[in-house]
Amino acid sequence: MKEEALARPEWTAADTVNSYVSGFLAACRVIARNRLALFGVVIVGTWLLTALLAPYIATHDAYEINIANRLKGPSSDHWLGTDYLGRDTFSRLVFGARTAFQVAIGAVFLGAFFGIPLGAISGFSGRWVDSAIMRVMDSIMAFPGRLLAIALVASMGGGLFSLYIALGINSIPSYARIVRGVVLAQKEKEYVEAARMTGESDFNILFLQVLPNCLSPLLIRLSLDFGHAILAESSLSFLGLGLPPPTASWGLMLKEVTPFLQLQPMAAFFPGLTISLIILGFNLLGDGLRDVFDPRQYER
């Protein structure tokens, strides 16, 4: 059905937008019917709101230390206890959501921004351009991402920007491969030939007609990637390679209390639970999207 629509030679940018919008709405409807996916949306949405409204939700100043009150268990004043500097764990988790989303949005954007065009060019041009790009992608995948992360963090003294790049670069290949795959499949189709005949430029064919077909696998990828980015950020921070202290970052919170595990195991319990929960949310959402877009699963 979609193909017929696309085959019209007078296809315009507005139509592309329309197809995106209607596709999105259809997706929403299916997700609303899938209970697990809805659960994912709720989790992700809750954390997103928490991140946006962090100062209003936090019960304490996430950065105010209180040495006399360090490593305490949950209490009525500190709902989830305090960390090794006596800071309120709950408030730091709330502000940690901000950090997590900031990093994830930046990293995912960067990966998609470079990965999608590279994949499209690779698939569309074929031959040596294709193999050159794909070999670069292979190299990125074979290269230990940790080194890159350390290199960037070391040279910039940590901070959001270095994490964007470190995490972003690592996800470029996955976007490039998805888009390349779809482009390769669509390239031979009739509507592309038809557009060529009408003298449409390669650029327009590629970005206005072929790329919309990548939408579904890309959305799935994006959702999963958000989860990956949050996990990667916390892993790097846990290794001490992410954001510098005293940033409220979930991974860093875990790292900071690790030496005190035997004294106060609770301090390590909640940050980990939070990370698990949000990644679960993104994965459920991703699964839901797969149900929407993957006809094989959809029919089942």
């Binding site: 916390s234 991974g251 875990l254 595990l261 390590a268 940050p271 980990g272 990370i275 929960l277």
Partner: peptide, 22 residues
Amino acid sequence: ALWGIAMPNFWLALMLIVLFSL
């Protein structure tokens, strides 16, 4: 399976250490 994917491995490691070692 869902939890296994979502759980950060370093956290699982810490929790296992707390439980089985400490």
